[in-house]
Computed example of a mutant assay.
Amino acid sequence: MPAISRGEVSYITGAASGIGRALASMLVDQGGLVVIADLNGEAAAKFAAELNEKAGSVVAISVKADTTVWEEQLAGFQHTTSKFKRIDYVFANAGIAERPWLPPFDPETAATRPLVKPDLATANINLTGQLYTAALALQTFERQEIGPSGFRGKLILTASVFGYFPSKAMPLYAASKAGIINFMRSAAQYYAAKNITVNSVAPNLVDTPIAPDTLFIPFRERKLLSDIQLVLDQFKKFLGESTLNGQALSISQDNVWVHPADTHMLEVNGPACDLISMEILKIFGDKTQ
């Protein structure tokens, strides 16, 4: 299983709990340095202190950042490069569960209710927030030399199987994760020859604080949860000298698979899709082929 080189730096959003916390612990155990970035600054600082106490040295720092606020994320990255000089891995992991974006459908009362502005918090955090993280990661990688593992940097985004499968109860969650998957595949193509990899890990439901514990009870009873260690094992596959790029490693219970890109009608659409990429890059003044 690939591993990081000792002293490599990982920036992890949503790292004070859940998958992000487990990731940080794993990376420190491999000899890495980690940045605990989280909206809950107090929890992030406490966790970083715990990691440092256990290691007997400074292996972690914390930053408080709302991922939907560009300026806060920018400050977090700047603090990290000031402290550790470079960032080898960025894990765009922060996310929330579905929130009701519209009131429940009820034609009998609809006429008596005002039209309401939708709650887009799920999309703002799970898509826009991750794209802010990605934008900072990719620009940081561009500004630094190739690291000990042979790359300028690696971006790994936390997606979900709901990036492939629709959910009538979670339209914004599904939309945001689908956006992450297609962004990952597109960015991976662009950066493929630039010593930068872009990948994603897409689990089904994992027992974390992302949702109230009562939600997980029926899933535990029916053994429908994905094991967090199996999820971590998929993140490991992208580390170190791994050349994997553009992959969506997916987990559901004990099942692990690389989810394929949609190729339906690609033979017909491929030439136009390739040409529009070339022409738009020209318009943008980008010499990438």
Rank of each mutant, 00 (worst) to 15 (best):
A45P: 00
Q253E: 05
V28D: 08
K46H: 05
L27W: 15
L157A: 10
S17N: 10
V28H: 11
A193H: 05
A202P: 00
P218M: 07
G18E: 07
A211Y: 08
T263A: 13
F91Y: 11
F216C: 05
L281R: 11
E221A: 12
A94L: 06
V63H: 14
R185V: 08
G31L: 12
V59A: 15
E42G: 03
G95Y: 08
H79T: 15
T68Y: 08
A159G: 01
E221Y: 09
T197L: 03
L230V: 13
P209I: 11
F151K: 07
P103G: 06
V69K: 08
I180G: 06
K282Y: 01
R6L: 03
V231I: 15
T263D: 13
N52F: 15
E53G: 11
A49L: 07
E98F: 07
K282N: 02
A15N: 06
M170S: 02
V201F: 02
Q229M: 12
P114V: 12
A16N: 09
N255T: 08
N245I: 13
A202W: 00
I156E: 05
I228L: 11
G31D: 12
Y173D: 01
T68Q: 10
D66N: 15
P209S: 03
T208S: 12
D286E: 05
A211H: 03
K177T: 07
L239Q: 15
P103W: 10
E53V: 14
I12S: 05
A261E: 14
S10Q: 06
T133A: 02
A37M: 08
W257C: 01
L115I: 14
L131Y: 14
G153P: 09
W257M: 03
E142P: 00
P203D: 06
